[in-house]
Design a protein around this nucleic acid. Structure first.
Lengths: 138, 138
DNA sequence: TAATTAAGTTGTAATCATTACAAGTTAGTA
DNA sequence: TACTAACTTGTAATGATTACAACTTAATTA
């Protein structure tokens, strides 16, 4: 899922979505901090730079970015919504000990099932859980 | 992930968990209605049989059943928690049009990544989204 | 069988994440 | 420069889940 900037601009026009200062900052944070942050993490960090920032704006910005396909939701855990920049295919591994989420390479194209031959698949998510090497050491 | 009843009984003893009437009813409902129900669906249906049932009990029962490994949470959507009986490996497909969740066969054992060679994997979830054949027809 | 005791159920209240809304602000466009 | 639609912000509302305390159930022991 690579981003094409022509398509993106068109998509933004189509949906009458502006890439405002706040939205760009949210996008920048998610892009530069590949930690699959929660809303609170994003808010806390950006609030330092933009003191007037409200949490509602973080929610709005994220939803706008999701609408245009730049960001996606990670629902690996049912009680904490996390966000990730849309990049090439990868799965998510959550360590049940330290809580950290790792990306791992996986070929989603090859992932299918005969049961879905008549289904239109728009999206594939792969979530693993377990213990990460750091936590195994201890 | 087949259920072994000896192990189950031992597990129940270990954790001091009783398979009470309400819990059995919740387990029975999830087993007999493979619709990946929400808490509200379970509550509404069982409430007809058990008028005194409270929603808290449904939550408690589900969490107890999750503890002993009979039930698992499906977090395919970030705003609706669903529950599924633990059976053989399968993925979940959610139709973005009608909202229905389908099971599909998938070999999770063969699903891995070189990036996870030093990780201990306890759990694998595969979530797809798209349009189901019923909705494509329309 | 009766008494004991720990686990389970229930209803209410509290909590927490997310959304709705209205007033003020910003930024494209004529 | 003025207009207009989109955006931001703070507060209030909503809704799902959990905490808690009183009561009930059921397994265990005498």
């Amino acid at each position: 899922m690579k981003v094409n900037f022509d398509d993106l601009t068109k998509e933004l026009k189509n949906k009458n979505i502006r890439l405002s200062h706040q939205r760009l900052k949210v996008l920048e944070f998610i892009t530069n901090n590949r930690i699959h942050p929660t809303v609170d993490q994003i808010y806390s960090e950006l609030h330092k730079d933009i003191p007037t920032l409200s949490k509602t704006t973080v929610y709005n910005s994220l939803n706008a970015l999701i609408d245009v396909g730049l960001v996606k939701v990670i629902t690996i855990e049912d009680n904490e919504t996390r966000y990730d920049i849309v990049t090439d295919d990868h799965g998510h591994f959550k360590c049940e000990s330290c809580g950290k989420i790792y990306d791992f390479e996986i070929n989603l194209d090859s992932l299918g099932s005969k049961d879905l031959s008549n289904f239109k698949i728009n999206n594939k998510d792969v979530y693993f859980k377990g213990i990460c090497p750091e936590c195994i050491k201890q």
